[in-house]
């Protein structure tokens, strides 16, 4: 991890600790929890798209797989939630391999359509054959670890944001490593990557698996927090929502995924006061932000800071 990242990471941890103290209302915590769950999915998509240059419009599929597998295993087989979550991630990873092996031969729009199709297939499967069909099922056990069951919103807030922090740490380490550089290399030139001996296909499959594991973990956490799930939470709309988070935050920066997730999750809440016009205002804000901050919020912020630093150096 670079020095800048380390500083930001500490600020980030500090903020997580601080928020419940400043405003521990159930409402704030709930919005916080959803932001965190979405952030997990967005971080995965950010590595996949922003770093490795592969498109996915099917993240909702992995998110749904995670939710259903973990919920089902813990409810019907009485598996401890931690174990069912691990199973959820494994099944998500297997689904990613099944999707990636044929789909990764495709590029750009074709890959986008293939992943979109995958998401839709999962959605249809959950509707047709998922427990409870379109209306889903409830009574999903809460998260528990070593005999402690989490039921409070503040508890979930800490749990989920600790996991976001862990996933973020792992991801930052990864992108600044040999494998992370290889992913960015593939993004820039597959021809040169091959000529440098990079196993392009394997790397692509691995990064797909990574994004799927993050999304399945998020799905599982969602299920145990909310205790009731139905297919409608895992439709194409969610895939697009995650895509928006990554783009608004800035696809070339991992922190952008978190910022984007928070912005896209919080924004509709702030727009409630516009009542029936909220969707309109929401759309307007997104369109304008994409027009004026095309690179995304975080990369633009980084540029500004660099400029300020540059000025400071010049003045000396």
């Amino acid at each position: 991890m670079k020095k800048g990242d380390l500083l930001v990471f500490f600020i980030f941890i500090f903020l997580i600790g601080l928020l419940p103290v400043l405003s521990g209302s159930t409402y704030t915590m709930t919005v916080g929890i959803f932001s965190g769950i979405n952030a997990l999915v967005a971080i995965g998509l950010c590595i996949l798209m922003g770093y490795a240059g592969q498109v996915s419009l099917g993240q909702a599929g992995f998110y749904g797989i995670g939710a259903y597998v973990s919920a089902f295993l813990s409810l019907h087989f009485g598996l401890p939630v931690v174990v069912s979550l691990i199973f959820a991630m494994i099944v998500g990873a297997i689904a990613a391999v099944i999707l990636a092996v044929p789909a990764l031969r495709l590029k750009g729009h074709y890959l986008a359509v293939a992943t979109l199709g995958f998401g839709e297939i999962i959605y249809i499967i959950l509707n047709e054959w998922g427990p409870g069909g379109p209306s889903g099922f409830g009574d999903i056990p809460h998260f528990s670890l070593l005999g402690h069951t989490i039921t409070s919103t503040t508890g979930y807030f800490y749990l989920i944001w600790c996991l976001v922090a862990g996933v973020m740490l792992f991801s930052l380490n990864l992108i600044h490593s040999r494998s992370g550089r290889a992913l960015r290399a593939i993004h820039d030139s597959e021809l040169a990557s091959n000529a440098m001996g990079l196993d392009v296909v394997v790397l692509k499959i691995k990064v797909f698996i990574l994004s799927a594991v993050y999304a399945s973990l998020a799905g599982g956490l969602y299920a145990h927090y909310i205790t009731f799930i139905s297919p409608s939470s895992f439709s194409l709309f969610y895939s697009i929502l995650v895509l928006m988070m990554v783009i608004v935050g800035g696809i070339t920066n991992l922190w952008g995924a978190i910022i984007g997730a928070v912005v896209i999750t919080v924004l509709p809440e702030l727009l409630r006061r516009f009542e029936e016009f909220d969707v309109l205002v929401y759309g307007l804000i997104l369109t304008l932000s994409l027009m004026f901050f095309r690179k995304g919020l975080v990369p633009i912020l980084v540029e500004k800071i660099k400029k300020l630093k540059g000025l400071a150096v010049v003045k000396h």
Binding site: F170, S171, N173, R178, S179, G180
Partner: peptide, 9 residues
């Protein structure tokens, strides 16, 4: 040699 997992950790 470093792979995804060992790099992340």
């Amino acid at each position: 040699k470093a792979g995804f997992f060992s790099s992340g950790l």
